[in-house]
Design a protein around this nucleic acid. Structure first.
Lengths: 269, 269
DNA sequence: CGTGATTTTGAAGCATTTCAACTCTGGTGG
DNA sequence: CCACCAGAGTTGAAATGCTTCAAAATCACG
């Protein structure tokens, strides 16, 4: 049933892609998760269920600002987000600190601790959050008996590696406006994949945090958002300007495409 | 002898590593790997030996420009670099392409393929290179019998995740000059950890490639290198300006420290 | 109903890109 | 052997995108 490759992937490119346009009717299509997104959600649910049935898990509820773990702390546990939003923050010896990752339901935390035996960053709850924690050694033991667990674990690590590379690519090839648009697109996509609606998303970060994550100043983030709103790609729905309406994800993606930096277009070699 | 130029050694991992510390004498200390670095080298050697003894491995020799795998190709194998230098290149649908990783002896390739069942990037040899390839499924099978293998595998994935975060941080918090310095520092450190000398390193990338990797133009890379040379932090040793002498790694690190961008210094929250 | 935090917006300054010209190197063929 | 050429690197000057600095508006919280 559950093994390395399949489950979470469409992986059957020849399968007929369901068109699934007709019955939707009233609602804006972009707001509803696509078929693929729903499959991802299904995969997350299955993975969490499998974990729940095979490994001893400790549930923890955290509030905004609470830390699941801190840099330097001895690595013992891995964690999975069940509810809420979590950011990982790297802080270097020289005082730099940097948001290096955002984590949603089903995402794992703490992989960076395996190699060195201690966590390499802080994991901070961005609002009320439920995290499942398990001992790494007992997870490994469980993997011996339930090979499907290995698939879940490796898939999660693999996905994180891919995700980090996409981030790197955005940082290197997109100008500020497009980077902000891409950030929103990714956030919305993540929600869609978890069965949540994406036409109305609530940012749980200040402009300063977003800027830190995207490698720009808070003013630039603010200007980019204003520009996106003026262009009709997004709209603000509350006074605090934390809630954002995305009429159509495809439009947002189109904005990113059109704004690929020139330097990114040059083919190497 | 210690030599950066990769002679294709006949890979006898269980061979006794000659310590070769005392008799060197004459050379500047910074050029020699530290104790910690030697431990890392030891770890790499042990990991390769373990792999060699427990998994069916296919050796492949590649030349500059050859691809170990390409984006979209079905994921079957994982790979480990035994000799040489390899870059991974992400190419997006919209034409952006981007160097997202550099890989040295002992580094793994292909983790990004696990989740989706196909590779997410290209892996390209930067010069003559020997790669060990193994089927992922047979590696998993071998892990059942040799639990130490799981440790090696997870450590490698964990290290890659940490490394990617460090890259992200450099991109976000360092100005161009310091980013180039940090790039050199990392390259030298990687050599040191593999028992190679670091006072004289040969870049296997054009300025354009370095710039692409670091998110800047080739002109900016060139200017940064010139500036570092003028400041005495590095020196060019050949006419083509590909060979670089690093008098003291600590000085290079100091340069990075002093050039942390202002935005990085602001503490979040 | 203040007070501090967050956000927006403008204007000036600066780092990096862009454009352009030039040098240098290494390889190829007459 | 040398002329020639393409590729790689350097360097300058102008253009530009982002940051910095500053001020005002708005929101959240006790």
């Amino acid at each position: 049933m559950f093994n390395a490759t399949p489950v979470l992937t469409p992986a059957t490119p020849q399968a007929v892609r369901p068109v699934a346009m007709a019955p939707v009717a009233r609602k804006a299509p972009a707001a509803l998760p696509s078929t693929i997104d729903l499959q991802v959600d299904e995969g997350i649910t299955q993975a969490l269920a499998l974990l729940h049935n095979t490994v001893h898990i400790t549930r923890r509820v955290l509030h905004k600002g609470d830390r699941i773990y801190q840099v330097g702390e001895r690595f013992v546990n891995l964690h999975v987000v069940n509810v809420g939003f979590i950011k990982t923050v790297n802080l270097a010896a020289d005082g730099r600190d940097q948001v290096v990752g955002l984590h949603f339901k089903g995402d794992w935390l703490g992989f960076d601790g395996i190699a060195r035996g201690q966590y390499g960053c802080d994991a901070v709850a961005m609002d009320t959050t439920e995290v499942w924690s398990m001992r790494y050694d007992s997870l490994l033991a469980a993997c011996q008996e339930h090979p499907a667990l290995v698939g879940v674990l490796h898939t999660a690590m693999s996905r994180e590696i891919s995700r980090d590379r996409d981030c790197l690519m955005s940082l290197c090839t997109l100008p500020a406006d497009a980077r902000v648009a891409e950030f929103l697109r990714y956030w919305a996509e993540s929600l869609a994949q978890r069965g949540l609606r994406t036409d109305q998303i609530t940012l749980r970060m200040t402009r300063a945090e977003i800027g830190n994550y995207l490698g720009m100043t808070l003013e630039t983030v603010s200007r980019a958002l204003s520009k996106l709103a003026k262009a009709g790609v997004i709209a603000f729905t509350d006074k605090a300007r934390r809630d954002i309406t995305i009429a159509d994800l495809a439009v947002l993606q189109g904005f990113v495409r059109r704004n690929v930096a020139a330097q990114g277009k040059v083919r190497l070699q």
